[in-house]
Design a protein around this nucleic acid. Structure first.
Lengths: 341, 341
DNA sequence: GCGATGGCCGTAAACGTTTACGGGTATCGG
DNA sequence: CCGATACCCGTAAACGTTTACGGCCATCGC
């Protein structure tokens, strides 16, 4: 069922049918309704390739997911919940969401370039932003709409939303330093990820204002998953003057850390203070309750959707500046940080 | 940069350029190489819409994700790990994977129909198969390639892979009945999901062969998530003659069940036996260790990719029957089932 | 030397839309 | 009654590919 066949059924030209279905003004209300009803009756749905080829618009936005740091994905419930909010936000503007997975080992920029010149989507949501992410200038230079989940070190104006790591680190570090901890182990994301820099900077700032010397041996960069959390926690606790507290900025890293501690005969929340990043299901399963931070991923997805839509041509006022938001996370006190010193 | 411009650079016709890039035979090796090199040099990548419009092929397969049962997705690490394997399997055949999220509240068949007539992908991976899933006959009747993750009650020949719930339930039930349990609470997936029927059937079969009467009050249908696990566990334990064992066929349901039990002053693995479905990160965080089942999601994704590719035109031998595989899950004994009766 | 064969390549017609453009009819003001 | 103005609608040219078809040239066998 083409537009041609539908037009023949209606005794109209395909041009008129197209205009009627696309809500353009050059068509009388009567025929518009007739066309819409006939389309529904015959189950006509425009072919996307033809439409895109001519108009250049696809009606979809892409969420780019790279499996490079697979621990950030593998078993990571963060994105799934986020995608739901994103889809809801996009639905309001009749946009579809497609998640594009970079092929194993494929470079992120190559992947993006491929899909951009293919013209698969109208706009992008970028995640896992690197410190100096080449995707940002690439898209900016071509004026392709996008919103980034995560800041970068790039000093150009674009839309982004990032978690408030400053707030998180501030809350966590005051909690620990005020409890008397002076040796605090930090597990930060991989050094290429931009968050990693922010986390370490805040860590040092907090130490300075508490008058505690900075020991680089206490800072590890690792993936966000369980097994890496276990490995790095083991290493940190094997130090001669081992830390009395652990700060784990990874999704399921605390699960591994608990296991590592117990293997050494140490109980989280009694012998060692532990603070995690997000209260995902895995962390909620821990006992004693993990002290960590929470956020509404559905809302975050919605905000990303709005931020992106504002950059799309047609939808935008063209004047307002791009969204640049630090997303609050609220501290959830559990038992795991309560270690008297 | 289109094919026309590239052809002009080379002094060739666009037809020849197209044939060279698509590895067709009607072109000399010398010019083929010349074309490929020029394309690489100028960064030419064929426009997907034009290509699809003419050839009908997209080079992508779609993974359909419905947010209907959002608890099956929300915070569910199952799919993320699966997608990685799927992408790896598809890469071997130069296929891209796109994940298509049904809009909130949109009917699954409507969603599928929309994307099929749009022609967004060459083939489909269906998940969350219903007992009588209308998507199956829809795709079969149109001879659109697909593979289903999950069986249905539909007696037609198509490619599917499903978890071996028969094996899982058999192992779990013998473990419990041989330990003397006679009142076993079951939390099965929502009744519309096909797995739910299988699980309940196996549950009854196991009871019969152990000579235990079937009590429908012990069977609950719920989502697979934490909060639902907590709610149903609470309900089951509030019964006058409450169960001595819980069997939870949901991803993170055991996390909620642990919490519910402890609120009642009951310790999993000591007062009540608990068995879960899969050893995801959340379940691995539980203490005492949850007795449950494990599988390699990467391998499963690969198998799905192969199963789908075999149904795609061109790749297939056309003769071999579609894959129909029960995927083994191996029992991982923890501490949570050890309750002496 | 000539017809046949096969390897390469150019030509042009699709694929299904959107959209600029122009034309036809009715309405309206004068 | 006439010209101008809207309002609709049809026409046709794109958009970027793929691919059936035909043609040219060289090679080959006789």
């Amino acid at each position: 069922m083409d537009i041609r066949e539908l037009a023949r059924h209606l005794g109209l030209s395909i041009g008129t049918v197209s205009r009627a279905l696309n809500d353009r003004k050059d068509v009388s209300p009567a025929t518009r309704q007739r066309v819409v009803e006939a389309a529904a009756k015959h189950g006509y749905i425009p072919n996307q390739s033809g439409r895109t080829l001519r108009s250049g618009r696809t009606g979809t936005v892409g969420f780019m997911l790279t499996l490079e740091h697979d621990s950030a994905i593998h078993g990571d419930p963060f994105f799934m919940a986020l995608l739901e909010g994103l889809q809801n936000g996009l639905s309001e503007h009749d946009l579809d969401l497609v998640v594009l997975l970079a092929r194993k080992g494929e470079d992120a920029l190559t992947f993006l370039r491929r899909h951009v010149s293919r013209g698969t989507v109208d706009g992008w949501v970028l995640s896992g932003t690197q410190h100096d992410d080449p995707r940002i200038p690439f898209l900016l230079d071509r004026t392709i709409p996008f919103v980034a989940l995560g800041r970068t070190a790039i000093a150009r104006d674009y839309a982004w939303i990032d978690l408030d790591f400053e707030g998180v680190m501030g809350d966590a570090m005051t909690l620990l330093t005020e409890a008397g901890h002076r040796r605090i182990g930090l597990v930060a994301p991989p050094a290429t990820i931009n968050n990693s820099h922010i986390v370490v900077r805040c860590y040092r700032d907090a130490l300075v204002s508490a008058g505690i010397p900075f020991d680089p041996a206490l800072v590890h960069h690792g993936e966000t998953d369980e097994s890496d959390g276990e490995a790095t926690a083991s290493e940190l606790m094997a130090m001669p003057d081992r830390p009395t507290a652990l700060l784990l900025m990874g999704e399921t890293a605390p699960v591994g850390a608990y296991r590592a501690l117990r293997r050494l005969g140490l109980e989280p929340g009694r012998d060692v203070a532990v603070i995690g990043l997000r209260d995902n299901p895995a962390c909620r399963a821990l006992s004693p309750d993990l002290t960590c931070f929470s956020l509404d991923l559905g809302d975050l997805g919605l905000a990303l959707a709005r931020g992106l839509v504002a950059t799309l041509p047609g939808h935008t006022k063209d004047t307002e500046p791009p969204v640049q938001t630090l997303w609050d996370m609220t501290l959830r006190l559990g038992q795991s940080h309560k270690v008297e010193r």
